[in-house]
Amino acid sequence: MRILVSSGTADAINTNQRLRQRIAHGFRELGHHSRALGLNKLWGRLEREPLDLLLITGSIADPGVDLAGLVRRAQGRGTAVAFWLHDDPYEFDLHWRLEALHCPVFSNEANCLAYYPSSCLARALALAASPLDALPLDPVAGNPDPEVDLGFCGVAFPQRVAILRQLAAAGLTLACWGDGWPDDLAGAVNCRLGPLGLRQLYRRCCFVLNLGREVPIANRRQQIASSTPGPRTFEAALMGAVQLYLGQSPRVAVFYGPGDGVIPVSRVEEIQNLVERARADPSWRRRLGEAAARHTRRHHLYRHRCHDLLAALGAEGLIAP
């Protein structure tokens, strides 16, 4: 099959272009011809190249993008069109535009499915990790003497700041990188990290904190809660980090069971006990890290998601099975 992976937002404001490249790579790993392409070049490509599937990914919050025109253009040339949204439920209120398009919608958040109109044929499809971001087998949890107890990388949402303050007050050492962190939080650095930097951060830590987020920027109508793990969960696991999954849905267990390197916790005492154990038994932590990487490579790469996506579209008769 010939598959083009594009974005629902112009690259000028799209902060997650790399995901479409990872997804296109996932299709190629399945043996399909696939490329990632920004919106600005998409229209011309649709004219020149016959395609079986156009997959529009990411956010569709930018109303300057003529999605209806794009769908018409693609379908007029015999190309099936589907959407894989990455910003549910936070941007769910803006997804009403999809109803009139009658294209299949894959949502990164299962809880949103009940609220999509039937014309969307909505299905859940979590994000994943990509082997493009995995260095040769050397899980970050292989470091026997990590410098700090807990590491985190991300934006300083209020719930996250509250959690880290609580952990710091409990005597746990932190390394926290990202945006918006208060100056008085020990271990916090306001600097964004790329994949290599992230890997270095994770190697310095016993455990990586997976804090989730609730960012109701356009989720006022139904106030849908988030249950599906975000891409960082899978990316960190692929690197071999052992994650502490805090304050979020227990549905992570659908993706990572006991022993798969993602540990749900809800209390400070649990974390203290885990850190103690990790320091006392580095091999335990290393095994967990290896299990996380192994499990992710077997079940949670983009090629697995791409397979499921194509199977769903084939079952609907929208593409050749």
């Binding site: 959690i163 988030s226 249950s227 849905s249 227990p250 209390r267």
Partner: peptide
Amino acid sequence: KPRLPGVGVLPQLRLDITDLCDIWNR
């Protein structure tokens, strides 16, 4: 903001009813 001294409860994000049922069940 709830304060429960002595209890290391970490802030919990809002949960969907299906998650709540799983938690109650367990």
